[in-house]
């Protein structure tokens, strides 16, 4: 490598990762390719490289999260970044501090990169206007959750050579799902066919405009499908009257062993945490064609890749 200057594939066009809606196919491919190489680090006895030494990352979690938070924290540590954590509970947010003030205080502590999870759509966009550092969206309300979609796509890529013509269906509460939205943008950009399936109360109106197929029938969605991604059903949606009962939801939209028998090549994914016996029958979760746990492993690698590709560049610094 020495004399080839910089092996110059251009870095990402974007400075932040707020969502996949504006990311090009090339940028997404670059992230996935980089993530595949970072996976090797996770197999080593010493799972740590010095790549981001001296870069400070702040994890701002305004909403409860287990796996995304853990996955980001691990990715940051594996790359030797300095990490500060902030969660809404036990912070001055509970004293009424605004997001803008919180963010500017954190920025004043010389943070290069912020990872934010917030229950309001657009919180990550808003943050980019408050601070000079790089912002990575770890889920903002029902808007986007780009790193989840990227890890989903990396997991699919392990089983299929191309996204061109790949048939993916996403099943469940599409309206409230940032995971579904990010996956639709990412998968469409790479040429996959996406079908959305769920009760009409949980499907947004005019969603077809995103270039996806929509159906209210599970058997129709699974026909010719390569990957079925079930979404977590938030149980509080029942009290809002959006579906009658968990049992009825499972009857209509739950994937069972019978579906796996009918579709012998179908792979099952889920962003977690799974309601066993609701979105997926319990034996489907544990089935060999369920690739839910490889999604988790890929999550760390994808976040390492995103951090590496977006970490502060010269001229970006406020100072």
């Amino acid at each position: 490598m020495p004399d080839t200057p910089a092996t110059a594939t251009p870095a990402l066009q974007h400075r932040h990762l707020l969502g996949l809606a504006t990311y090009s196919a090339d940028e997404i491919r670059r992230i996935l390719q980089t993530a595949r190489e970072f996976r090797e680090v996770l197999e080593r006895p010493i799972k740590r490289v010095p790549t981001l030494r001296g870069i400070t990352v702040c994890n701002l979690f305004f909403e409860p999260s287990t796996r995304t938070k853990l996955s980001f924290a691990l990715a940051e540590k594996r790359l030797s970044a300095d990490v500060v954590n902030f969660s809404a509970s036990g912070s001055s947010v509970s004293k009424g501090e605004t997001l803008k003030d919180t963010a500017q205080n954190i920025e004043a502590m010389k943070v290069d990169l912020c990872v934010i999870r917030h229950n309001s759509p657009g919180a990550a966009h808003f943050l980019t206007r408050c601070i000079n550092g790089v912002v990575i969206n770890a889920g903002d309300g029902a808007h986007e959750h780009p790193t989840q979609a990227l890890l989903d796509m990396l997991t699919m890529r392990d089983h299929f050579d191309t996204f061109e013509g790949l048939n993916v269906c996403i099943i469940g509460d599409i309206t409230h799902s940032r995971v579904a939205r990010s996956n639709v943008f990412g998968l469409k950009a790479l040429g996959a066919n996406v079908t959305l399936c769920g009760p009409s109360t949980l499907l947004p109106v005019e969603v077809e405009r995103l270039g996806v197929r929509v159906t209210h029938r599970l058997d129709e969605a699974l026909e010719g499908c390569d990957v079925a991604m079930a979404l977590r059903l938030q149980l509080e949606r029942q009290s809002a009257g959006l579906f009658p009962s968990l049992r009825e939801y499972h009857e209509q939209f739950g994937i069972t062993r019978t579906h796996l028998t009918q579709h012998p090549d179908l792979l099952i994914m889920h962003p977690g945490p799974v309601n066993r016996g609701v979105e997926l029958a319990s034996d489907v979760v544990d089935h060999e064609r369920s690739i839910i746990l490889s999604q988790v492993t890929n999550g760390v690698a994808v976040r390492m890749a995103v951090l590496y590709l977006l970490a502060a560049r010269p001229g970006d610094d406020a100072a």
Partner: peptide, 23 residues
């Protein structure tokens, strides 16, 4: 071996060198 992850200039470059396989 790909030594990209061990480079000392991650902060100094505008472009990110492509990480290649290590095996």
């Amino acid at each position: 071996l790909d030594a990209t992850m061990y480079r000392d200039d991650v902060r100094l470059r505008r472009t990110r060198p492509q990480v290649k396989p290590t095996d």
